[in-house]
């Protein structure tokens, strides 16, 4: 890092004149930030889509539609189906596979297991990348801080060679170092916000799925008992 007191303190100049470790930190943070924003938008779309589909399916289901018709619909339009629809399809498929007159308990057990398995998978899918957002939110400030500390360290070290130290000698170095912290915070803040939001959203969906599973079990049990 040079100690030349420059008049030009534009952002690009500061970044380009930063030392290599600081630049590396900035690059990492930029990539992390890009990636986290990408996941933020992806998750936003996915979860919004999921909620919409779940709403639709619940609406359809509780309107008292025929279970066979629902199953047909779920398996035929497999790409358009939501998680809840897939859980239903897995459960009802398992249930209808058993020949009539088989053991009630074992039928309900296997149906439950099938639904549980699909539920786990769906939840896994919904929660994917959320951990990445959490990591970005907690770690990227530290990465930025590392870059800042490094930059300030260098700035002060070069100050020791100057007989008359003025704030003008250290100001550019500190400014460029602080950019790293700014970038870290810029990556972290949206990631933390998004993580909390999406975590609560998926939690809500999970509760809805679980309650639906219980209710479907009841419905199917009634069918077995008939």
């Amino acid at each position: 890092m040079n100690t030349v007191v420059t008049q030009d303190l534009s952002l690009l100049y500061l970044i380009s004149s930063a030392s290599l470790p600081v630049q590396l930190v900035m690059l990492i943070l930029l990539l992390v930030s890009l990636l986290s924003w990408w996941f933020i938008f992806r998750k936003l779309f996915v979860i919004r889509h999921e909620i919409k589909q779940t709403d639709e399916f619940e609406d359809y289901f509780w309107r008292g539609a025929d279970l066979n018709a629902l199953y047909q619909r779920a398996t035929s339009s497999r790409y358009a189906s939501g998680s809840m629809e897939r859980i239903f399809a897995a459960g009802f498929g398992e249930f209808s596979k058993h020949p009539p007159g088989s053991d009630d308990k074992s039928v309900m057990e296997s149906t439950r297991r099938a639904m549980q398995a699909t539920y786990q998978r769906e939840m896994d899918k919904l929660e994917s990348h959320l951990s990445f957002l959490a990591t970005v939110g907690s770690v990227s400030p530290y990465i930025g801080l590392l870059g800042t500390v490094w930059g300030i360290m260098n700035s002060f070290r070069s100050l020791s060679n100057v007989a008359q130290a003025t704030i003008a000698h250290v100001a550019p170095g500190i400014a460029e170092a602080l950019i790293a912290t700014a970038m870290g915070l810029f990556a972290a803040i949206p990631a933390v916000i998004a993580y909390n939001r999406y975590a609560s959203d998926t939690e809500q969906l999970a509760t809805r799925f679980e309650s639906f599973m219980e209710e479907l079990t009841n419905v199917l049990q009634r069918r077995v008992a008939e």
């Binding site: 992806r42 897939r86 399809a89 099938a114």
Partner: peptide
Amino acid sequence: SAVDAVRNTSAPEPGV
């Protein structure tokens, strides 16, 4: 149908 259900989970993610 179980295979179908499994396949269903691989539906493409919207808006990547």
